[in-house]
Simulated scan of single mutants.
Amino acid sequence: MHRSLCLAALLSLAASSALASGFPVTVRSCDRDVTFEAAPKRAVSQDINLTEMMLALDLTGQMAGYSGISGWYKMDDELKARLGDLPELAPQQPTKEVLLGADADFLFAGWNYGMKVGGEVTPDTLEPFGIKVYALTESCIHIMKKDKSSMEDMYTDIVNLGRIFGVEEKALALVDGYKAEIAKAIAAVPADAPVPKVFVYDSGEDKPFTAGRYAMPTALIEAAGGKNIMDDVETSWTTVGWEGVIERNPDVVVIVDYGDVTAEQKADFMRKNPAFKDIPAVKNNRFVVLPYAQATPGPRNVEAVKTLAGAFHPTVN
Rank of each mutant, 00 (worst) to 15 (best):
Q46E: 13
L126N: 01
K283M: 13
V25W: 00
G118E: 09
V189R: 03
S29H: 07
E52C: 06
G259H: 13
E168G: 14
E120R: 05
L13S: 10
L11V: 15
L89C: 09
L11K: 14
A223E: 02
P190L: 05
D251N: 03
I141L: 14
E264R: 11
G162V: 05
S149A: 15
V288E: 14
D192M: 10
F287Y: 15
D268A: 12
P297V: 05
E303F: 01
A43E: 10
G84W: 11
D58H: 08
P40N: 04
T296S: 01
E234T: 09
V302T: 14
C6A: 07
R163E: 02
S236C: 13
F287D: 14
A109H: 00
A173C: 02
L55T: 03
M144F: 11
V44C: 14
M144V: 10
T137P: 00
V256F: 15
L126I: 07
K148A: 07
Y178L: 06
N285K: 14
V44A: 14
Y113Q: 02
A295W: 02
D124W: 11
A183P: 01
A20H: 10
A188I: 03
D31Q: 11
Q92G: 01
P274G: 07
G61M: 02
M54E: 05
G166C: 02
S149V: 00
R32N: 03
G225I: 09
E243G: 10
N317P: 01
A39D: 03
A304Y: 05
K272A: 15
V98P: 08
P87K: 02
E205T: 15
A102T: 07
V198A: 12
L83W: 02
K148F: 00
A219S: 01
K132M: 06
V175D: 00
V245E: 10
D58E: 12
M216H: 08
K179D: 03
Y134K: 11
M63C: 13
A188H: 01
L290G: 12
T122P: 05
P280I: 09
C140M: 07
V198K: 10
S67H: 08
E97Q: 01
D176A: 15
F108W: 04
M154V: 06
R42D: 00
Q294K: 13
K277H: 10
N301T: 07
D176E: 13
S16M: 04
Y73V: 04
V133N: 00
P91M: 04
G118M: 07
T235C: 03
K283G: 13
K170H: 06
P24N: 02
L55D: 00
K146H: 13
T235Y: 10
E52G: 08
L100M: 02
V282D: 09
P297T: 06
D257T: 11
P91Q: 08
D202H: 12
V302H: 11
N284L: 13
A39V: 02
A90H: 03
S139T: 15
S150K: 03
D231G: 05
Y214S: 09
L19V: 04
A81H: 14
I143E: 13
V316C: 12
S12Q: 05
T315G: 12
K132S: 13
P94Y: 05
N273F: 15
T238N: 11
I158H: 04
K41F: 01
R3E: 12
G162Y: 05
R213N: 10
L10M: 07
V256K: 12
A43D: 08
G118H: 11
F269R: 13
N160F: 01
A263R: 12
D260V: 15
N160S: 06
G212P: 08
